[in-house]
Amino acid sequence: MMPIQVRLGRLALHLVLAAGALLSALPFLWAITTSLKPARLTYTPPLVIPTHFQWQNYVDAWRAAPFPRFYLNSAIMAVAITAGQVLLSALAAYAFARLRFPGRDLLFLAVLGTMMVPFHVTLIPNYLVIRWLGWVDTYYALVVPRIVGAFSIFLFRQFFLTIPSELDDAARIDGCSRLGVFWRVMLPLSGPAAAAVAIFAFLFAWNDFLWPLIVTNSVDMRPIQVGLAVFQGRYGTRWTLLMAGTIIATVPALVVYIVAQRRFIEGVTLTGLKG
């Protein structure tokens, strides 16, 4: 039995966490409720607790655009980008965190700099590059330009810094090459970081809208977010269908999160070797 103070503390903690969780979840709950309403009640309360279950909205939303194809495109794009970001970014981060070479900090600043240029002004030049490569309307255009990211490199670098360098030294003494250290020491020890990068890379790719729209011309190459735009038209938003489509589109991202966050298990003491 826990002492009474601890139990009261836990209870208070639960109260605070639950209130915050409700606030966090509110817009998502609203999306679910709206997706199940008859259109006529779009603007009427209640906001959060579903009182109607118009599953037909999901059927209608699914039929409003070639969603199976959009799903497939998004899946191909998101998986390829996630795999690329995890591997290639980790590789680059290893160089920045552990290797010594001239101009390292300058190069790293340049990498960070790529995050600081507003995307909108590079849109046209970027399209011209894709066109020059002959990649307009292909998966290459959807995947390759985003297969590495400064964000992922930076995140990996910060995690590699927390891995005790005694571990690489030991591996080097055992005859491991530098790339071997990366593969056998750094990568296996950065599970939680890789999970975080994977979550963000997947989400970024899955939610991306403008770039895929600009570099594709045929409807067959579009990802799911472009499909959702059908419900948010020039003259009005069809809220019930938009929210049904949105829920359909969000489920994979949530599943990826729930699976990946299992990596964050309390008490993993991989790096406890040092302590």
């Binding site: 817009p27 999306a31 949105t246 949530l254 966050q261 964050f264």
Partner: peptide, 14 residues
């Protein structure tokens, strides 16, 4: 953990 993550995946329009 899941509930607090929801805002990240909630579409901005909603």
């Amino acid at each position: 953990r899941t509930l607090y993550f929801l805002p990240v995946v909630t579409p901005m329009v909603a």
